[in-house]
């Protein structure tokens, strides 16, 4: 079953915005610009998620859930021994893309900051959604493993097509996939988490990632 959820705006994380804008460590000189961009973005942002829980079947290296069959080592490592997965898609909406488009023409400096705001917003939305899911799972003494997405590690980007078919994203949250496997609205995430009863040691987001040369690495 596909479900949808609408979230209240998650708390703003300015340090993350600065990290995505690659101005981490800059002095206060961008404060006004960031404030102005946040103010304009606030009125057009929305926070929508659609999701489904699926049972996992394993056959040697093959992992199957819903309509998805994969041999991805990244997924295997992320979900561990989970018996179920939570598949979800999250978006901050199409009107934000219009704003981005407008400033891409009028003021690339603002577009750059807005771009970073969009990235921070959708990641914060994913965090809020996963936190909610974890709270819901406490009853059954389970929790989510870390989330991974198509295009990350060895997960093929074309798994997006299967996720979109599974979650009916266009209808549920207005999220579409184009022929180049790009999502519109652009500030959107699809992801897969395992649901496990095992203990998980908390780690900083970036610590678990293999991409050690990443410019955004914390």
């Amino acid at each position: 079953m596909i479900r949808t959820a609408i979230f209240d705006p998650p708390a703003w994380d300015r340090a993350e915005i600065m990290r995505y804008a690659r101005i981490r460590g800059a002095d206060d000189s961008y404060r006004d610009l960031i404030d102005e961009c946040i103010r304009e973005a606030e009125s057009v942002l929305s926070y929508r998620v659609c999701y489904a829980t699926e049972d996992i079947q394993r056959d040697n290296e093959l992992i199957c859930f819903g309509n998805i069959e994969t041999t991805s080592q990244t997924i295997k490592k992320a979900i561990g021994n989970s018996q179920q997965v939570l598949v979800f898609a999250a978006t901050v909406g199409a009107p934000f893309d219009r704003l981005l488009q407008r400033y891409s023409l009028l003021s690339p400096s603002k577009a750059l900051i807005l771009q970073a705001i969009g990235a921070e917003r959708v990641e914060s939305l994913c965090d809020a959604f996963c936190a909610q899911a974890n709270r819901d799972l406490t009853v059954s003494k389970k929790r989510l493993t870390r989330r991974v997405s198509p295009g990350y590690g060895d997960i093929p980007l074309d798994m997006q097509r299967d996720i979109f078919a599974l979650l009916d994203c266009p209808r549920k949250i207005g999220l579409t996939l184009d022929e180049s496997l790009l999502m519109s609205p652009s500030k959107s995430v699809t992801a897969i988490c395992g649901i496990t009863a095992e203990e998980i040691t908390e780690q900083a987001k970036c610590a678990e990632c293999d991409k050690t040369d990443c410019i955004y690495r914390q």
């Binding site: 199409a94 893309d97 219009r98 488009q101 979109f164 266009p170 209808r171 579409t176 996939l177 184009d178 022929e179 180049s180 790009l182 519109s184 609205p185």
Partner: peptide, 14 residues
């Protein structure tokens, strides 16, 4: 007739 599932240009690629 339902939607195509794609977004129209210029915000999308259709």
């Amino acid at each position: 007739i339902g939607p195509t599932g794609r977004l129209l240009k210029p915000m999308g690629d259709l």
